[in-house]
Simulated scan of single mutants.
Amino acid sequence: MDIGQIVGLMRDGVWHVFILCAPILGAALIIGLIVAIFQATTSIQEQTLTFLPKMLVILAAIALLGNWMFAVMRDYAVNLFNMIPSLAQ
């Protein structure tokens, strides 16, 4: 295995992490922005107000996208395990 293959594996791993985290972080960002705008317009400055909506949205996003996220992780892991015999040579 040469350095190019190692760099490719690391790049693919980082890319998969980005793809799997982006929808969850995007949902948290959007709900955080909505709550922040609500706080600014109503002059409510409670720090804990953003916690519950973000937690609920993140849990809902994981519930909705969990099957897809698991499939992506499974395919990547199977691909890595299938590469093991070629790495032993």
Rank of each mutant, 00 (worst) to 15 (best):
Q5F: 02
N82Y: 15
G8Y: 00
T48C: 05
G32M: 11
W15G: 11
M55G: 14
A61M: 15
I24Y: 11
W68S: 15
A71D: 15
L49K: 03
Q39V: 01
Q45R: 07
N82S: 11
G13C: 02
F81Y: 14
Q45I: 04
V72Y: 02
V14N: 00
R74K: 12
F51H: 07
M83K: 08
L56K: 02
G4L: 04
C21G: 10
T41Q: 12
T48N: 05
D75W: 00
S43Q: 15
I37Q: 06
P23C: 04
K54I: 09
I44R: 07
A28G: 09
P23T: 01
M55S: 14
T42V: 04
G4A: 10
A88H: 06
T48W: 09
V72P: 07
Q39N: 08
P85C: 05
I62R: 06
M83P: 06
A71T: 08
V78P: 03
I30C: 12
I37G: 07
F81S: 08
A28P: 08
L33R: 03
T50V: 15
V72N: 05
I24M: 13
D12E: 12
Q39R: 05
L9K: 00
L87D: 10
A28Y: 08
I30Q: 09
H16L: 09
A88G: 12
T48K: 08
L87R: 07
I3C: 00
I19H: 05
Q45V: 04
D12S: 06
Q47P: 10
A60W: 03
R11V: 10
N67R: 14
G32D: 11
A77D: 03
L49T: 03
Q47N: 13
D2E: 09
M83V: 04
A22N: 01
M55C: 14
T42Y: 07
E46L: 12
L59D: 07
M83S: 14
V57T: 12
A22L: 14
F38R: 05
L59F: 09
F51K: 01
A27R: 02
I58P: 13
M83N: 10
A36C: 12
P53R: 03
G8S: 12
R74I: 04
S86Y: 15
M1F: 02
A27D: 08
T41G: 06
H16D: 13
M69Y: 05
N67Y: 06
A22M: 12
I19P: 03
L80C: 09
F70A: 13
F38S: 13
G8A: 13
F38W: 12
L80K: 01
Y76T: 13
P53M: 00
A88M: 15
V7D: 00
N79P: 04
W68P: 06
L49Q: 01
I31Y: 09
I24N: 01
Q5M: 05
I31A: 01
G26T: 09
G4N: 07
F51A: 11
L56R: 00
I31L: 10
F18K: 00
A77E: 06
L25V: 08
V17L: 14
F38D: 06
Q39G: 02
N67E: 14
V14L: 13
